[in-house]
Design a protein around this nucleic acid. Sequence first.
DNA 1: GACCTGCTGCGGTGTG
Length: 821
Amino acid sequence: MQQQSHGWEVITGWLADKELKPFRFQEDAWKAYQQGHSGIVNAPTGFGKTFSLFLGALIAWIDAHPKDYQRKQKNGLQLLWVTPLRALAKDLGRAMEEVILELGISWQVGIRSGDTPLAARAAQKKQMPEVLIITPESLHLLLAQKEYPQVFKHLQAVVVDEWHELIGSKRGVMVELALSRLRGLLTQEGRPPLKTWGISATIGNLDEALEVLLGPYHSNGIIIRTNLKKNIQLQSVIPHEMENYPWAGHLGTKMLPQALPIIEDSQTTLIFTNTRSQSEIWYQSLLREEPMLAGALALHHGSIDMELRIWVEEALHNGILKAVVCTASLDLGVDFRPVNSVIQVGSPKGVARLLQRAGRSGHQPGAVSKIFFLPTHALELVEAAALKTAMEEEVIESRMPVLLAYDVLLQYLMTLAVSDGFHAPQIFEEVRQTYCYQHLTEEEWKWILSFLTTGGDALAVYDEFKKLERQGDYYYCKSRMLAMRHRLHIGTIVSDAMLKVKFMSGGYIGVIEEGFISRLQPGDSFTLAGRNLEFVLIKDMTVLVRKSNAKRTIVPSYQGGRIPLSANLGRMLRRKFNEALSRKTKDPELLALQPLFRLQEELSHIPKDDELLIEKIDTKDGYHLFVYPFEGRLVHQVMAALLAYRLSRIQPITFSIAMNDYGFELLSDQPVPLTTENAKTLFSADNLLTELQTSVNATETARRKFRDIAVIAGLIFQGYPGKHKANRHLQSSSSLLFNVFSDYDPQNLLLKQAFNEAFFYEMEEVRLRETLERIARSSIVITHPQKLTPFCFPIKVDSLRDTMTSEKLEDRIRKLIAVNS
DNA sequence: GACCTGCTGCGGTGTG
């Protein structure tokens, strides 16, 4: 047995006094920290991952200062605690302060983020606390300060909280870059290596998450997991009248009466919905159905004013609310102890998201997390059965790290340039130590430096794009105006322009999209934050409203992201259909769906997981072709376009396209030339990339992606805070840049990135290829139902339509030939 | 005949 250290004794003694018995994995984490390792701690929520690492830091501190660890003195910044949410910082800070106070350790905790008061930030400038809780953005703001290395002179460790949340995004890249600089600083100054720890929920690629955190060349990284399992129960709420349950739809308000008993039986319930408008509708409908809930029911989503949201969070904490209807805005965060049940309305689209939400209830070790699943249409019950099995088998999604994000790199270099300037060879080395930029070539690096100094081939004539000056290997930003503008723009979250909504009498309610309000006339009523509001006028980019007594109001919809069904869930879903008609199935969801399955089998077929079902149906609308890969709407959208293109090469034919997460439809006014003989060829993965480029309008998708890239890279100034430029301006200037680069600087890396992102994120190219390969191994079943089937109905209902005509295609092909010859 | 779509997250005009 290894001799325990002094710090170890102090901490275990303190815990024993409080009658707290640490988990084995917590002790493992302390030990690993103390021994100078870096790594990731992985355990279910509510098991004290955070606590264990913080205690590890304290043990290390006591060990280093055994005699005077309690002496009041200023020690400088020792520990950086990175969190993705400002809201987490406050709670965490409070908890840490408590421990420090009780142990009498000479440490102070500070918070650094946009919502810390100016005075606190000014004080930090003079004297940093020993522990600083910070967001990735604020960390980069620290790097943008003059003489920033001073700040980190005593830094020993960085802990990244909720690393699974950051890893798949450009915010994660910001963390990678900041870590590379901090490691570089410590090495330059000959100090012991930086300890880096991540705290993560379970994801499919935890090993990769470790590599991203520590860089691909790390050697001392370890993953500390617990074998303790969280007990999670998923219970589907089966519609009382299955026969009348809709085949399509997404709101699920039909199930509302069956949600009420759950709410009544629990102390506090969180009701998760998929969209903001859906949460508004549920809130209103619940109050209508059960007026007794007035005052005990609240609403929480991303477009509701921060102050109102904070009020709801506090009220939840204090246990005065019976239920809260919310979106993903309450996925993470504050430890809502009083929550004892969770209702998920509609598909969560992925296993990880379901686990995350279930974990909001029973948030202590040993407690059971219970989540009720409320289907919004019949087939969603199959998803519920699939989710249950996926949870049992722990099939959890991976979060793919972002690679070669040139925009974030440009921003980072500008950050370093406006502080002390940077030594290019040194920074190049550091940057290449990160996972994101490990394959950055010297050529690309040169392009990036020259882009920052000259504006590149296309923008060389405009002075405002000559941002940096070069002296030997050093690069600086001398312009104070550019430096100030840059500090205002640090970060990778690019939001759409939203208008604030405010009562005439004062008081903010939330935000709303420009496009929505432009369709309203003064006097019209709409709903926001659960209130009925009458639109009065727009003044200074603010929508002024008064209370409305109107019976009918419009619920605004927002142009949000569209999360596709995850690959894991899709796979599980296909598997579930194997059991659909089997007498052996025990899943209550599948049993309830028997009548629907029988109808589907009678009219058409239920595909097994090694089959691809295609339905050909003729109606007065035309000739329909329905295909069911169950791979999420993004893959379906591209597959539909690809198939339409390939069919149109057999004979000129025009299609309209519709899709959902289960499948897609091609509709034409002439018979579709797809047969048992040519089906496999039509779904082949051969020539995928070339045919994708002709069938899908990749340029348009890339153009949309380019907008965010241009903002992050600092090419578009979004205006000063408070005086937001209208979205139109943003859109047009980014579109202009896109054109200019396409015409005069086709080698532009940002342009290349836009296309990469379009293929990777908007078309899920990798998943598409895998799907086509799977289809090649499957048998294709073509049926000819006499009328619409339960499977195709939801797609038919989907209003989103793309049209593509072979005429247009011919034009494109002609152009292509002209360019080539 | 069956249908009201589309999440979250951060930063903040300044050094004598």
